[in-house]
Design a protein around this nucleic acid. Structure first.
Lengths: 214, 214
DNA sequence: TTGCTGGAGACAGTGACTTTCTCTTTACTC
DNA sequence: GAGTAAAGAGAAAGTCACTGTCTCCAGCAA
């Protein structure tokens, strides 16, 4: 329930994540503690739960994520998410403005400020990567293992960009951070793969490094 | 303490992770529950803690990780770790052999079999990526944000390869999975970067997208 | 009515984790 | 030696997240 999340964040902002008990959240939201656990599973889940993405069907996910350009798909999703139809051009603003605290980015602060929440976020990113890995497997081209690796890179790369956005104060658009930070990963798709022959682990040699080497 | 880990894994193998209490572990290891918490922090920490890596100084880490070829560095570390001086050529073998259960890969099973342990692993990978991110920043070439993204990709890409190894039964060398799975990431270093000009957060405009792709 | 299902609260229990205090060991200084 | 301080380890009590299980009440079909 959206109301439970909002009431919980009110209490967290007021007294801190650790100082608020589930019972107090349940009382503030006028539900029972049992319902809070039934809906969110854990205390951290109240902050982390993203109804939009969590309830997305595999088909809907596949229609959004382009296997040939997952980073572009991610960018489009971020841009659509952070700029609603109208409004002040997508600036999340992690400050205490009464209007800004209603933004969907309100909870992001706890992703990085509260260690237990951060770990829960890592857990959901891990699960998300398992959902998108099958979507980027290309039978003759990208193996299952490689798809897993790339999916993890996408999910946690986004997380890294989001952290940089948060550390910088949350003023500039998140999409800028995602675009800039994940640019090196684009070479995965723009460069020909190092080996197009089938892999036989244990017998293959590592591809040569380019002379560029930064 | 190595002994606490071993005694705890004995109990976990015997009765399952969830069915063993900290008190029982403390009793089996002949220490107090307080000591278990002082050393490992959490119950999951008993399984996840890696003394070798956790206590590694930043200097030692920098001497191992080559900024120009982090994947190669990772591969070398994995190969050195999984093949001790002599012995049966690095096959971890997650089975129940009394000798095999002494291997350092014994605990890896719980990384993927026990959800709470898996989340704790994600947390430590997250922390590890924060340690290595500064080491792969190259002032004019790789921005801080990009270094964060790449560090996450390395840490969790390794995790993804390890999971594939586990799902396949743990028979072939882990290094093979790492090499095969992370091969697409090598193009990060072998392809020229999309923009080599310096970014100035707050004043810069988003750099142009390459014409390839999207 | 009866029966079924499913969402929601009440309630008791478990155990992970924290906090605090104390005892011991080591070591450094006078 | 004596004083002592810093660090390591155990004892014990408390908090609270989380898990069961049970009941109740809505809706809905036969």
């Amino acid at each position: 329930m959206r109301t439970i999340q909002e009431r919980a964040l009110d209490l967290f902002d007021e007294r801190g994540f650790g100082a608020v008990t589930i019972e107090e959240i349940a009382a503030a939201a006028e539900v029972s503690p049992s319902s809070v656990y039934r809906i969110f599973g854990t205390k951290e889940g109240i902050v982390v739960a993203d109804v939009e993405f969590d309830s997305m069907s595999p088909e809907a996910l596949a229609s959004i994520l382009d296997p040939a350009d997952p980073i572009g798909s991610l960018l489009r999703a971020v841009r659509a998410y952070e700029s609603p139809p109208e409004g002040e051009s997508g600036s999340g603003n992690a400050g205490e403005g009464s209007q800004a605290t209603r933004s969907p980015w309100r909870r992001v602060r706890y992703f990085f400020a509260e260690p237990s929440v951060r770990m829960a976020v890592c857990g959901t990113l891990d699960r998300a990567s398992q959902r998108i890995a099958p979507l980027i497997t290309v039978p003759g081209e990208v193996s299952e293992t490689q798809a897993r690796v790339i999916a993890k890179a996408l999910a946690f790369g986004y997380f890294a960009a989001l952290e940089q956005w948060y550390l910088d104060g949350g003023n500039r658009p998140i999409a800028d951070y995602v675009e800039e930070g994940m640019r090196p990963l684009r070479s995965i798709w723009s460069a020909p793969h190092a080996s197009s022959e089938r892999d036989h682990p244990g017998t293959s040699v590592p591809p040569p490094l380019s002379s560029f080497t930064m």
